[in-house]
Amino acid sequence: MNVFRLAGDMTHLLSILLLLLKIYATKSCSGVSRKTQELYAIVFIFRYLDLFTDFISVYNTFMKVVFIASSLAIVWCMRFHPVVRRSYDRELDTFRYFFLVGASFALALIWHEKFSVQEVFWAFSIYLEAVAILPQLVLLQRSGNVDNLTGQYVFFLGAYRAFYILNWIYRYLTEPRFTRWIAGTSGVVQTALYADFFYYYFISWKNNSKLKLPA
């Protein structure tokens, strides 16, 4: 574990806590894409299939449980909580994410570290995570004004993978024969997809103005 990876995991945890806070505090999920939350639930379930078979550390197992449980809890709230579900932007959150799931799985069948169930599903979860934010970014563009907590959620969710890229560079430089080509390539694509969001987020922060993504 190095400082970049720890910063990445803590930033990722913070983004999830911010989203839980927004939903709990405002009893509303306006501006949040349920499709992105569902994609993340799929990402965590297929990435952590080894949750019960491989024990790496208490930290590792604890974080995996937190990520899976929180993503499922958020999806449940947005679908079934009597108050929260009413504020879901159903008519704006229309990204046909089936293609993202299909394309990620097809790519995982082609490019993986080993041709085994676990490795193919792991690669699938890596590719799917890279594009999982797309429904959320589309929803932010369509819904105009973005509330602070939702904007902060997306910002930290994008930042965490940038820390992981620093972690991979650090490990590549310090650990002999360390490679993470699949996660590294996918992580660069994932972080690049946030580029315009980061730009408008920085502008809104600099001008102390409301975050607004151009339609």
Binding site: R5, D9, H12, D50, D54, I56, N60, M63, K64, F67, E113, K114, S116, Q118, E119, W122, Y164, N167, R180, A183
Partner: peptide
């Protein structure tokens, strides 16, 4: 020896 599945990262 191919790396086993063990993924130490989240």
């Amino acid at each position: 020896e191919e790396s086993s599945f063990l993924k130490d990262e989240l």
